[in-house]
Amino acid sequence: MLGCICIAGCDIKSKNAATRQSQEKARLRLEDMQRIAAQTAQTYKAMDNATLVKKLAEQSVLKREPFNSLAYRELKGRKDVNSDSLVALIRERKNSDALLPLLLLRRLDERTYAQLPADLRASVLTDALQQSKNFNTWGLPHLYLEEASKAMLECDGSAVPALKRMLSETRPAPVFGSKERMEYLRYKYRLCDYALFFLKRLQGDTSFVMPLSVEARDSLIRDILK
């Protein structure tokens, strides 16, 4: 009886019982997941720096974006991270697996970051670009650049040979998101387009704007490869 009366009452307010049940299901699931997300964040907050750096190294191998790496999110706000531990990871790996430590070092300790050899930074960044499955780490070249892209543009000529090799790679460079995804679909980005963008900017064309048309981009790529 209780259930019947309740459902009837909810019917009036939510137009029908099915809607009410859907709302309730969604609400409960949302609350569950919000609780888990809060617990996860708390777990990371409670970790010491050494443990977090270890997690950061793992999440770098998993190709998490910096802003979606729980370890990166937590470490970027800490003042007492040992730069040497990050440098050690970068020097040991020298490739895309060191991207998160590299970007964290750039954010937390600019001076130590600048002291890293340019070719080492370029090696990590270009390998990360080459290995990317989703390109959120880099941003959308016609709209905004994420920190990894800004780091790439600081590499001078060291990144150029690897970027030139990527000019022939036409595999898609997808971006996940809402409007971000729609912009990716509009431009139909490929790995070679990201390489083109970085090369143009690194070669001094600081106002280079990415053409919308794939054909126009292919033409620019052909010019560079001549």
């Binding site: 974006e65 979606n68 959120n136």
Partner: peptide, 15 residues
């Protein structure tokens, strides 16, 4: 939300 990591995910940091 990503269920494997138990956390919210974002498409961009710059936004």
């Amino acid at each position: 939300y990503n269920e494997e990591d138990g956390t919210n995910v974002y498409a961009s940091d710059q936004s």
